[in-house]
Design a binder for these strands. Structure first.
Lengths: 187, 187
DNA sequence: TACTAGATTGACTAATCACTCTACAAAGGT
DNA sequence: ACCTTTGTAGAGTGATTAGTCAATCTAGTA
């Protein structure tokens, strides 16, 4: 692992444990096994480090999610895969998931440009549009569906994260069904 | 408004805007119109201020929610009221709502004692237990229902917060129906 | 009036932190 | 072999900050 990655990994660990304020750049450098100067060689400011870490994690997540899709998958199958694999990713990468939330509810999120944020949600939005177009899911505003799906996902995650691994699967599967029913059932 | 309240109000405003790190105690004192020393007369440490602000807001919210309930309300009516009024509270108190989330995804949450946190969710948990006992809602684990309801609530809030006020009501009402269907519908 | 206890002030301090700077090493191109 | 670029180190610095402290003020009570 090269130094830059090492710095990002250390920053992730420390930010999640001690928060942005509670983590001096000096401690990040020490944990990463590099000098103070090296950290600032790769990241001009601490803020840049916080931002780049966020973007890196989000990109990794998206790449992982969409790598699970095969061309023959139906829209419904894709949505289910994105749902299920997000949970498994979050369970395997708890710190990363926590970090994303941490940034989301901090002023640092405003430092990340609108276009970068939109780029990251674009594929998900597109997926919802497709599902709406083919009448699989209800005709609610796309943003509303996106927000509700995200929230539901976090809800399921927050519950299963405290469960022993052998009890997680049924809840996750059922969790998807709940969301799917919510988005498809007709009154 | 006495000085202590003034300090809490200023801290809320600044923490939400600039984050915990970005807000020195000196700025809080200045914004509150009190001296540096006065702040530390009321709050031994900055951490104490962060904690107390969280607890105060949460208590205010709970008091507000349960003040809307009348003795003749059915369990279903109570749940609906708690849902609907939470959204309206959050819309009227955006900074407070944001602050709660901010603390929730920060290391400061671990500084708040388990018993205080449990006390605050107790009434909500109890409500779910009642609904389950009277077979109104599905027999899922209470914690799961609690988590899902919370997430759904935040999802709806996140969507309506960007809507013009006159378009909010139908979404909120419909949002409750979605959750209710999810928790009651039989397969 | 005199006493007391809490409220309030703001200058002060010791520590910390983000970031700089200089020096040197390694790598790579020509 | 020479030069340029990039990587790495770590001591140093100026600014900032949480928290202290001694002094003053205020209001209640006897």
């Amino acid at each position: 692992m090269d130094k830059k990655e090492q710095i990002l990994a250390s920053a992730l660990k420390l930010f999640v444990e001690f928060g942005f304020h509670g983590t001096p750049t000096s401690k990040i450098a020490k944990e990463a096994g590099v000098s103070n100067g090296t950290l600032f060689h790769y990241f001009a400011t601490k803020e840049d480090l916080i931002k780049e870490l966020y973007i890196t994690i989000k990109n990794d997540l998206n790449q992982f999610l969409f790598s699970k899709i095969t061309p023959e998958d139906s829209v419904e199958a894709i949505i289910k895969k994105v749902f299920i694999y997000f949970i498994y990713w979050a369970l395997d990468n708890r710190e990363k998931n926590h970090y994303i939330q941490q940034v989301l509810f901090s002023p640092h999120i405003f430092q990340i440009s609108e276009s970068v944020l939109m780029e990251q949600s674009q594929k998900h939005i597109q997926l919802i549009e497709e599902a709406k177009a083919t009448k699989i899911i209800k005709d609610l505003p796309t943003d509303l569906i996106y927000t509700l799906a995200n929230s539901h996902l976090m809800g399921i995650y927050n519950y299963v994260v405290n469960l022993p691994p052998d009890q997680q699967k049924p809840i996750i599967e059922n969790g998807f069904e709940m969301l799917w029913d919510m988005l498809t059932e007709q009154k």
